[in-house]
Amino acid sequence: MRFSIYRYDPIKDRKPYMQDYELDLDEHPCVMVLDALLAIRDTQDDSLMLRRSCREGVCGSDGMNINGKNGLACVTRLAELKGTIVIRPLPGLPVVRDLIVDMTKFYAQYEKIEPFLQNNDPLPVRERLQSPEERDKLDGLYECILCACCTTSCPSFWWNPDKFLGPQALLQAQRFIVDSRDTEKSKRLSKLQDAFSLYRCHGIMNCVSVCPKGLNPTKAISSIKHAILKEEY
């Protein structure tokens, strides 16, 4: 199987280039893209750099662009890919080296939505209770693993990474907006009414098509827009 992999080492390369590798799958029985990349690194080129940790789609470390679509290398099956497999780093973020990107801008947007429960009511004696129905509202929101596949597939984030929050941060914003234990819904909604933070989403749904956890940021963003409308009028 042939791989074409993005290579860039800022210390010795003037510009990025694509490097081809052949991997014999009979000799190296790989199931996922990550298995193949690690086999290439172990047997052919130990200078190839990538992030990975859990290797089972939980940690979100190995987000990359595989044949033009963002995804996690550890849960993308080689059998589902055709022809030469082209691997690039996640688009829209600066490359640190090879397949490793600098996630600073991504985390900065996540920080802006204040991703923690805020409750100004007096502390209860034991804990803040939630009914099963209230808890159900968090399904499809809390499962995000911050792999950045969605945000880096969004053109609005590519053009305005400092102003548009991106689908990941907005999905997480909705996770706290609908949480019955959070009392700062109005404050959270009022912070999203400028021209860029939320409304730069035009609903093209790239984020939905790439999310390795099957989440739907576009739906969450739409829900936020309707919540703001309800709040303001």
Binding site: S190, Q193, D194, A195, Y199, R200, I228, L229, E232
Partner: peptide, 10 residues
């Protein structure tokens, strides 16, 4: 300006 996005959207 803080509500430009909302107004444009409407």
């Amino acid at each position: 300006v803080s509500q430009k996005g909302l107004h444009d959207w409407i």
